[in-house]
């Protein structure tokens, strides 16, 4: 039989590093089997104690901050949702209003230009009518006045 397991080998055993030689020895040697079992039992009791201790002291889980965050995010979405809809409507109105206003301005400018052209035509027609309405007898006088005016 191989020599008894030393403390280092028992530590390796408990750490999960078991050589075939050590396993064979533990199967054959009651003393080493007991030493290994006792050490592992001690580790198991340590674990059991840690678990019991933790169970006794375990506080109730606080409400998850993620629940609060989710709720806040939901509210934020709701608030920003309403504000967002309002903003979208305003933006859409503005976008629509700009061309409408531009169209209105363009139409007003066109109307003004049309009016100016109409006024000009009317003025020309009036001038023509006035010219034609001057009696032939007065024409020389009119020319004289005009000439006089030009000479001044």
């Amino acid at each position: 039989m191989n020599p008894h397991l030393d403390s280092e080998t028992i530590c390796k055993w408990a750490a999960g590093e078991r050589t075939a030689e050590a396993e064979r020895h533990v199967r054959e040697c009651a003393g080493c089997a007991e030493a290994v079992a006792l050490f592992e039992r001690g580790l198991a009791e340590f674990r059991g104690g840690a678990h019991d201790w933790s169970r006794r002291l375990l506080p109730p889980r606080p409400a998850g901050a993620w629940q609060v965050e989710t709720a806040v995010a939901g509210r934020r979405r709701a608030i920003f949702g309403v504000a967002g809809i309002a903003a979208c409507v305003t933006a859409a109105a503005l976008l629509l209003a700009v061309p409408v206003e531009r169209g209105r301005q363009r139409a007003a400018a066109a109307r003004a230009a049309e009016q100016a052209r109409a006024d000009q035509l009317l003025l020309e027609r009036v001038n023509a009518a006035v010219s034609r309405s001057t009696p032939a007898s007065m024409e020389p006088l009119w020319k004289l006045v005009s000439t006089t005016g030009e000479n001044q």
Binding site: G42, L43, E45, G48, G49
Partner: peptide, 27 residues
């Protein structure tokens, strides 16, 4: 206090006094 808890739980086990003392000491 888990050490005390371990001692309490060991007291109720089917162990020889020597084994119980050894395990308690190890814990």
């Amino acid at each position: 206090s888990s050490v005390e808890a371990a001692a309490e739980s060991l007291a109720g086990r089917d162990l020889s006094p020597e084994a119980r003392a050894a395990i308690q000491q190890q814990v």
